[in-house]
Structures are given as structure tokens and as C-alpha cells.
Nucleic acid binder design. Sequence first.
DNA 1: ATCTAATTGTGACATTTGTCGCCGCTTACG
DNA 2: CGTAAGCGGCGACAAATGTCACAATTAGAT
Lengths: 207, 207
Amino acid sequence: MTIEQRSAVHNFEPALVEEIQKLGSERQLDAGEELMRPGMYIRSIPIVLSGSIKIMRQDEKGNETFLYFLTEGDTCAMSLTCCTAHRPSSVRAIAEEPTKIIMVPAEMMDLWLQKYPSWKNFVFQSYQHRFDDLMDAVDSLAFQKMDQRLWRLLKKKAALQEKRYVYNTHQELADELSTSREVVTRLLKKLESMGKIKTHRNRIELL
Amino acid sequence: MTIEQRSAVHNFEPALVEEIQKLGSERQLDAGEELMRPGMYIRSIPIVLSGSIKIMRQDEKGNETFLYFLTEGDTCAMSLTCCTAHRPSSVRAIAEEPTKIIMVPAEMMDLWLQKYPSWKNFVFQSYQHRFDDLMDAVDSLAFQKMDQRLWRLLKKKAALQEKRYVYNTHQELADELSTSREVVTRLLKKLESMGKIKTHRNRIELL
DNA sequence: ATCTAATTGTGACATTTGTCGCCGCTTACG
DNA sequence: CGTAAGCGGCGACAAATGTCACAATTAGAT
């Protein structure tokens, strides 16, 4: 599975694709594996080849909240800025499922920006998409009640895998919504009684 | 007051400064004047010369929530992406106080990116700062109770003007926090009884 | 098969936030 | 002036969410 088949990066010039494959190093992440944590310095830019990566925000007290997913062809806007500005990450990145990425050395950023128009477009599009994603997260946090947020999260997760099952415990969902397990259990019951889902152990079925 | 004295843009090459001043058009905004609204197409990039601009997110039902302020030398990341991608704005921008901006034609974006390293840095730094600002907004929404959010908002507003007075009605603050006037009144009373502020009509004094 | 730890379910209660109605005060304006 | 509109204060209550204690169920290990 080569990178040029990928969606958001399918406009890369052949020469750029070649450079990426030569200089980048592929890496396979297990589900749940942590790629990045707050405070960590990043020296290379990850591009997702397959699977998906969950981006979470953490506060000092260890509370977390889900921001967005990265999928095929996506890159982390955080790593773009962190690499160029030599700043530590302010988010946590965890593989949501078995995920393949390619790590590109950060030094190439500037050079490629000059050399390859498609790289410039890629970088700007990434910023744009991540901005949209963050706006989505803000909408969810600012304007929606917990039951709607939960329902939206479930739909996103199901869409990721193109399946109607979500394999998470109530506790995991609670962490991603920054609430408590009991609240999630309660609201899942409510969604179930509304006929939107069916709950199983370690698994939720969307109807 | 010329642009080269400004903080985040003080590294612009003289030639770039000249181009900006030749091609850009200055504009004076009154306090409360709307510069941008959701759905609007933007054909030029605003750079703040003095004063400050409040960026708000709106949902379909008209609810709003404060995202961040732009101050001297800042530019709107939204306009950078909107201009290049020909997409409508997804935020609302309102002058927080009398504010002077310069509007730069969007067509120059690409050209200057090639021509002036300082412009490229400016654009990337803008993305970076706006990302940080959005993270701050997420933190506030996800992890803080309304009283803390209110207190933080008041401090930010006071810091903007370097004064200890905030000139807002309870209703205005409620809109920015996406809550109701009564809640703000209640929490202001609480902050007052804690000795953090003193309330007056149309004005709040930070202690 | 049995035990153990993880997961889920549930009721009770506290806290936070949202909402309604109504009041009195101040300011702007005719 | 006098009046209307805007602003702030208050009490009561409703709804949403957070928290605690504990029970019931299930998966996985030995």
C-alpha cells in the first residue's frame, strides 16, 4: 500500500512521493498505542497511511477531552507547528485502531514548501481541516448536551471503521467526553430506550 | 503609527512593509462593529494595527461562544484559509474596542509566501497562535465551571486594555460564555463576595 | 470449574446550570 | 418632566450533570 493512493495526498508530485518514501520511516501502531503526549518534542511529521489516530486535549489535573480523529492522508497540525517552532506538543495522540504511519523528518518542511507546490497545498489544507475539526469540537462542547455529544461521538467512531459497532467501554467514552462513567451508562440507556443503539458488553451497536 | 512598529510583524522586510502599505487599505472599526460573519466570503486578509477584535463561534440556532481575541500584529487564521480555499467564514469577528486594521488583498498570499520569508513565518506563526488560542477555548469549555470561565474572561478583557475595568453588561458576558444573564449575575455576585471584583452598572472592577 | 478483576447497572443525593416571573433602578429620549 | 427601554437583583423551581455506594454480570486467568 503506497502513499500515492491516499486521498488527501493524491496530488503529490511523483518526485515528492519518492522523497517521502526514501526519507520517511514507516511505523506500525497498535490500537491504543501512544504516538505523542503533551510536553513531548516532535522531530518528525507523521502522515497517516491507514487506520486512525485520536487526538485528545489534557488539562493539568489529567482530565481529557476528545478533539478529533486523523485518518488516511491526514497529518497533525500540531506537529507541523511544533516541528517548525521547536515547541512541545500540547495534545495527546493515540492510535484508535491498528494504524500505519510514515514519519517525515521535520527538516524537510521548509525545503519542500519551496520545492513542491503540492506540499504547500497539503500543509495549508491540513491546517484548514484541523481548524474545522477544532471548531466541531468547540461546537460540541459549547452548544450540545452530553447525550448529543455522546451520540455524535458514537457516530464518528462507527463511521471511522465503516461498521455499526463501537468497541469501547463506558469508561473510555466517559474519558473522551470528559465526564463520568455513570453518566455515560445513564445516557447509553437513554439512547437504547430511544432505539438508537443496542448495548452489549465492550461493544455498542448503532441502529 | 506604522505597521513596522508592531510586535508580531516587526520582522517584515522593508520591501514587504512597503507593499502592504501600498496595496492594503486601512480601515477604522468602531467598538462593536462587525468585520466578518459566518457564511461571508472574504477577499482580503485583515491585520490588526491597534485595538482588538473578538472572534466568536455561532451555531445554527444563534447561540454564540467566545473563542479568542486578535490584537496588534495579529491576523485571522480563518481568513487565511478562507481566502486561499474560497470558502465562507465559519466565525464572527467583532471589534472589541475602536480598532484599526489594514486589509491586504488575498491574491498576494501565494506570491508573498514565495517572495518574503518573513511573510511565510508570519502566516505560520498566525496558525500556531490561533491554534493555541483555540486550545485555550477548548480548555475553558471542557474543563472549567462557569464561574472560572467568567473570571478568566474578565481577566482577559481587562488585560486587553491594561485597565482594571471591564465595560460590559451581564447580558454581553452571558452571550460570550453561551449562558444566560441570570447565571452571569449570580456568579458575579459570588465573585464579588469572594472579593475578586466589584460590580457597577455597565462596568466591573477587578480587584 | 473457580476465582478475580473488569464492566455494567442502579438508586440516592449534591451541585451546577437553565429558566421563569417579577421587581426596582437608571438612563435615554421625547 | 415623564415614560419606555435597558439593566441588574432575587426567589423559586426544573433539568442536567457529578458523585457515592454498592450490587450484578461477565470475561479471562489459573
